[in-house]
Design a binder for these strands. Structure first.
Lengths: 211, 211
DNA sequence: GTTTTTGTGGTACAACCATACCACCAAGCG
DNA sequence: CGCTTGGTGGTATGGTTGTACCACAAAAAC
């Protein structure tokens, strides 16, 4: 039944199968065969849409980073038209904590790729450095703005704080993946820390339940 | 020349070869053959000292966690007889930042194991949760002591701060492994954050260069 | 209506893996 | 001295992997 299929759609379908398989049994265990089974198609078709395994892995990595960027953008839009700095920063950082199943799959496989990229030169670690660098710059900007606006301790160093925030959210996300912490706990810890860096009220006032 | 060899020594030698190989080309790529070559012995011998590959991997993991515990203990002893809380906490956390080659190998392979343990049930993720849990308890104890002694902000929540510290040091260590940050930068950031949680002087005084 | 082109299945193949097996050598022990 | 046992090399084997190859059906192009 060769009825002129949408290539991009088919490729996305196969990549999703790969991500599912990688999240279940590990990236190291994905084979052409296992991806084919997961996608419900024959091995030949996986070969047909991605000539080689390496290209398949590369395409999956690309989709992964793209999709994560989209998720962050989506969260940012969710903060409304005139969000305060803390809401923006919180939105960005909380994306690192896997809550729903999709984000768990994405972060797990993304982490597997990142670790793999350290030893595998063919993967070229650049994609794994570009995104965090952008995030860092983003956080520095907003932290500086908050400090200059007087909603943060004037003594804080925006760059250092940004790096700490990024590292903490990455570490928390990882601990959730490893099953050491619940997503709720990780979220609470992140909010706590953010509350100390960027108090919702000037530091002199006690904050009651903020509704 | 079968001259009654020391088994434990030989096993350690082989495990070290495995760790080196895993750090170079990835844990997924270690084979009986590659370990044998790295150790400079025949495949048969690897089989002889570790019956199966799974046992070899398990033994390597055990050695890894043991060795990391030793390194932390060593750092703690290095803080002297009556260390202040901040020195103790700093010593523990800085161990997560790979500086020398040995610690880089250990942390890289340890991370590979940790990620692998998420999907591979045979590895049993317990070892990767026990150590962080102990570290968390340790930090909570010392942070509480520091707070009660008045050397830390009385408003800080020791448990939350401990988790943040742990997550941040793990995240920083990972970013160093990925080549995003230098060990020096990661160390500086960690020290900065520690300085905000546990100021060396009461918060009212400015601290000059502490020599 | 024929002839490309596109999509698909099945299978073959060379490489590599973990592991089992066989042979042998040298030291310890009686 | 015999001979048992610990240490070693080499090789065979059964299974898995990525990929190349062959055949074929149906839509598109002419």
């Amino acid at each position: 039944m060769p009825k002129l299929v949408d290539h991009e759609e088919r490729r996305a379908h196969i990549i999703d199968a790969l991500l599912r398989a990688a999240a279940n049994t590990g990236l190291h265990s994905v084979t052409m065969r296992s991806v084919a089974v997961e996608a419900g198609i024959s091995v030949r078709l996986v070969q047909y849409y991605f000539d080689t395994k390496e290209q398949l892995l590369l395409a999956a990595m690309t989709r992964l980073t793209t999709r994560m960027g989209e998720r962050i953008q989506h969260r940012l839009r969710g903060t409304g038209a005139t969000p305060d700095p803390r809401a923006v920063i919180e939105a960005v950082l909380l994306e690192a904590v896997p809550t729903d199943e999709e984000s768990r799959v994405f972060h797990l496989v993304h982490t597997e790729y990142a670790v793999l990229s350290v030893t595998d030169p063919a993967l070229g670690g650049r994609p794994f450095l570009a995104a965090p660098d952008a995030m860092e710059a983003f956080l520095v900007t907003h932290l500086t703005a908050a400090r200059d606006a007087g909603t943060a301790d004037p003594d804080l160093d925006p760059r250092h704080e940004a790096v700490v925030l990024l590292a903490a959210s990455a570490g928390l996300g990882l601990s959730v993946l490893l099953g050491q912490r619940t997503p709720e706990d990780a979220t609470a810890v992140l909010r706590y820390h953010l509350g100390r860096v960027l108090p919702t009220r000037p530091a002199t006032t006690q904050d009651g339940p903020p509704a």
